[in-house]
């Protein structure tokens, strides 16, 4: 591995945590502070009365904003910009949504099963107009199980770096180089967990297939929506969202 010495591993931990802090979109203190700020019954009804396409468009925009932060996270990760551009794109196309799903556990409140969305907290019912109750339920369940691990900000940083830098993504041109970076990040994550006596977390992280399955469900639902409302997707969805998913 290129990061062999302890000092280098510690530098990598610092780099990943700093990259994450600079690109986490919303600070944890702010998300915790907002927990009492719940959507009223009327506001929830107003979301539920929106048309399916309007709600899809809103969610596509919110998701795209989150993904832009993940792109910035990737760019700051030591070694990422040294990969060839094909591989940078392969890793982001496959991993950006997965990173957003992991990051979402910070915006989820397990006490009342709500998530921070457009300035307030709301439950699954807020997203009813999307017409994908099963997908939304699965995403909330995922956040619920991840939030039970009580991951620290640094643990989320290192975990999401490894979600992104995955040498098994199909289509990589310089697989060896990605493998080396992944190996360094694994060392960094393990080192940090040892240092903080949190090695137990490793066995409790969700299997990779769970994130993959959520992303596939999202793509399937988008396909159905795009079939029914091709003009909405074409005219109103963010270009980056279309580039990644449609």
């Amino acid at each position: 591995a290129p990061y062999a010495s302890l000092t280098e591993i510690e530098h990598l931990v610092q780099n990943v945590c700093k990259s994450y802090r600079e690109t986490c979109q919303l600070r944890l203190e702010e998300l915790l502070r907002q927990r009492a700020n719940l959507f009223s019954r009327e506001e929830v009804s107003s979301y539920q009365r929106k048309s399916e396409w309007e709600m899809w468009e809103r969610c596509a925009h919110r998701l795209t904003e989150a993904i832009q932060h993940v792109v910035e996270f990737a760019k700051r990760l030591s070694g990422f910009m040294e990969l060839c551009q094909n591989d940078q794109i392969i890793l982001l196309k496959a991993g950006a949504m997965e990173v957003v799903l992991v990051r979402m556990c910070r915006a989820y409140n397990a006490d009342n099963h709500t998530v921070f969305f457009e300035g307030k907290y709301g439950g699954v019912e807020l997203f009813r107009a999307l017409g994908c109750g099963e997908l939304i339920g699965s995403i909330f369940d995922f956040s619920h199980s991840l939030s039970a691990l009580r991951l620290s900000e640094d643990e989320i940083a290192l975990y999401t770096a490894l979600v992104l830098i995955n040498a098994n993504r199909p289509g990589l041109q310089e697989k060896r180089k990605v493998e080396q970076l992944q190996c360094s990040l694994e060392l960094a994550f393990h080192h940090h967990l040892c240092k903080t006596h949190r090695q137990g977390v490793l066995a409790q992280l969700p299997p990779k297939g769970r994130l993959r399955s959520l992303c596939s469900q999202h793509l399937e639902k988008l396909q159905v929506f795009q079939h029914l409302h091709p003009i909405v997707v074409q005219a109103a969805f963010p270009p980056l969202y279309k580039e990644l998913f449609s």
């Binding site: 792109v71 910035e72 760019k75 700051r76 910009m81 551009q85 270009p239």
Partner: peptide, 16 residues
């Protein structure tokens, strides 16, 4: 490359 125009652009921009 054209297929990923926006991603290319985001990756080429400096850290902002």
């Amino acid at each position: 490359q054209e297929k990923h125009r926006i991603l290319h652009k985001l990756l080429q921009n400096g850290n902002s």
